[in-house]
């Protein structure tokens, strides 16, 4: 029983990790309707930046967020403005997909060129200290990740529903042309949203860096799971991504323990494929399409 509870606790902590990575991805998709295949590399870039700030300046990894999040905001905003926006009117999806796939390839290999294949370990600053909560034991850093993910979900929801800018973002997401007719600068909203989504990744990378080794391929490792989470939660839904992350965290932990650690990825992707094919709108998406009406 205690083992089971420990596995569940691990699953929830993993879920927190997946959540904080996925929130930016789902935000960007939900608003701009672009799947950012370079999302994982944004995370990688943020983790390298955290590593550099922590080791060169001797700061606490969490303190680096004041630099990393704005830096990622700029990276995201530039990606939208220079790469995605010129392609928004493209006839085919493949152009947008290749654009971010190309960005991802370039970023991974740029990291390889700059840092080589070595692993960069950000100082843990005591965040790997185990903490006992009742019968289970988790790492201090994991708790912070989980809490930050939950706060980020609440914060973003409040921002999107309670502020004029947030409402404008939702309006653009729901009906771009109508939003323009309200006087909303949709292109600017897109740049802003991509920036916010990327800044969320920046936050995630400062939280994750002390716990996970940074390497050029770390993004690929996380991003595939992030896609799973986002599809599961319903693309574009921030609370959905949180719940989806918890589910995938639990599935990952349970499959890793009871089926075998080398097959847990296969189980996670198997679940993903089943969801994608049977319920492409995600577990919680219930929108009825009325587009057939003449």
């Amino acid at each position: 029983m205690e083992t089971f509870l420990q596995v569940v606790a691990n699953g929830l902590m993993l879920g927190g990790l997946f959540a904080i990575i996925s929130i930016g991805l789902t935000l960007i998709f939900g608003i701009i309707k672009v799947v950012n295949f370079a999302h994982g590399e944004f995370l990688m870039a943020g983790m390298f930046l955290t590593y550099l700030i922590t080791t060169k300046l001797g700061l606490h990894p969490y303190a680096s967020v004041v630099v990393v999040a704005p830096a990622l905001f700029v990276l995201g905003a530039l990606t939208q403005r220079l790469l995605i926006q010129p392609l928004l009117s493209a006839r085919d999806d493949h152009v947008q997909i290749f654009a971010t796939v190309g960005l991802s390839t370039a970023m991974i290999n740029l990291a390889l060129l700059l840092y080589g294949a070595d692993i960069a370990n950000t100082p843990t600053s005591g965040l790997r200290t185990p903490v006992d909560i009742g019968p289970v034991r988790v790492l201090e850093g994991q708790i912070y990740i989980f809490l930050c993910a939950a706060l980020l979900v609440v914060g973003l929801e409040l921002f999107l529903h309670r502020t004029q800018t947030g409402r404008a973002i939702r309006a653009v997401a729901q009906n771009r042309a109508a939003a323009q007719l309200m006087g909303i600068n949709a292109n600017w909203i897109y740049v802003l949203s991509f920036g916010i989504g990327a800044a969320c990744v920046g936050l995630a990378s400062s939280l994750i860096a002390p716990l996970y080794p940074t390497s050029s391929t770390i993004g690929t490792y996380f991003v595939l799971t992030a896609f799973v989470v986002v599809v599961l939660g319903g693309l574009g839904s921030i609370p959905g991504a949180f719940v989806g992350a918890m589910l995938i965290g639990l599935i990952d932990a349970l499959a890793g323990f009871y089926i075998g650690s080398d097959l847990r990825e296969a189980v996670v992707f198997g679940v993903f494929l089943i969801i994608l094919i049977l319920r492409p709108s995600g577990l919680f998406g219930t929108r009825v399409k009325l587009s057939h009406i003449s």
């Binding site: 004029q164 939702r170 309006a171 729901q174 009906n175 939003a179 006087g183």
Partner: peptide, 18 residues
Amino acid sequence: QLFPDMTVRENLMMGAYR
């Protein structure tokens, strides 16, 4: 072309965005 997942009030508020 309303914003389907917004309330009527929010839709009207968006109208006054100008």
